[in-house]
Design a protein around this nucleic acid. Sequence first.
RNA 1: GGGGAUGUGGGGUAACCUGGUUAGCCUGCGGGCUUUGGGAGCCCGAGAUCCCGGUUCAAAUCCGGGCAUCCCCA
Length: 453
Amino acid sequence: MKFDDLLELGDIVDIRYPAKGFIVIKPYGMLAIKNLYRLFERELEIDGHEPVHFPAVIPERNLRLEEEHFKGFEGEVFWITRAGLNELEERYVLRPTSETAIYPMYALWIKSYRDLPVKYYLSGTVWRYETKSTRPLIRGREFLWIETHDAFRNESEARSQISRDLEISKRVIRDRLKLDFIMVKRPSWDRFAGAVDTYAVDTLLPDGKVLQIATTHYLGENFARVFNVKYMDDTETERYVHQTCFGIGINRILAATIYNHADETGLRLPSSIAPYQAVIVPIHPVSDMYVDRVTEIYSKYRLKVDRREGITPGNKFYYWDKRGVPIKIIVGKREEENSTITISTRSGIKETIPLGEDLDKYFEYYDDNIKQTLKIYDAKDLEDLKKILDAGGIARAPFCSVEKEGEECYRVIKERFKAEIRGVRIDVDEKPEGKCIVSGRKAEYVVYIAKQY
RNA sequence: GGGGAUGUGGGGUAACCUGGUUAGCCUGCGGGCUUUGGGAGCCCGAGAUCCCGGUUCAAAUCCGGGCAUCCCCA
């Protein structure tokens, strides 16, 4: 089913808000988003992160401090130039990302090696003035995300955080949301503005374009130097901290989850974020007492009892199927008389089981059933590449270089195929064979190529 | 930045070419009655021609401008 239809059908968002690139997220979508936030926040906290709040406005002066960073964002920030009747002496920007809001405070807070590491996360909203065409949840001018900002004593501690960030992605995105993805190190020409290295989690949408859903950056000392984030080490030497930051695109992850798992009927939400994991559908005649008992017994799940009158059970089943509810619990006279319930999963299983029997296995079965697998194919030459891209897949190909020397080959891919070099896989070890798919020079890397959002 | 297309109730559409019924249909939404084991039926109701101007007895329809959205190209 088409993405926009799914959003409409599932009552996820309302795109009629009268400002381009801004949308309203309705309760059913917001409940899923809150569950999504909790999944990530829990993992981040287990990893030692603490929550923090920072203002949405950043003074212009701060944003300008890191030159490369400023250049990267200058064209897409919203400026606040007036307040009330006054022209502001110093303009603000609405944060497009929070490095330049947070690090001046880190400079005040971090004094000693004993203060490190600092690992904070911020769950919130950022604003970017997107000039490309916007799409609900996928590319908006306002979006919800989580960003972590970590400071360490040295490079090796910082770099080991990157693998922990990526493990968190695996645990949530793959294990809980059942989305498949690749983790790549971005080519040098595609780094986050101001970063030393950028790593990303890319998934593929059914329309054949990849979507970046999370990124983690190694910032080195770049920001520490301009924001003066220093500490005294145990030999009484002043040093700059080494920093990482990790951005988790909540809107985009929701979009990918909805779009990838949907079928012709409608949504199929993973049980980990479904607003209602199971809907109880009472069928007349059944006593309220029995329905209440069922609700009580299964209260460890997020439940909804559909007591609407004047609607046939079949219509209720269809209604909740469209909205992606994993399991329906049917209770009627037959169940009440035998102390049973009837389980009907979104994937088609229907079974009557004794009241009280655990439902976990049904959720597991359902979740496994919706699991996504990426379409990745090997491209030996440019003809292969074209076929793969046209078929809506991701191509794996030998490539000369992901540093500056490879940029010319990248231009060819970009111009001729409108595709991007997503980068070099870091979650699997790969050795290149043969020659660069574009230049024919010796291939030093295996890269992934796809059209992107 | 250049080109093209399209704007009709909440969503999807018909009527537009060739101006003329009460702007039709499906769905969704609200209410009533009858219903309840996989999309029930009947009845009632709310809800639309993007904006400004022009032509005309008469404009959703033709013309001009604006705005918005989408697609393609840089």
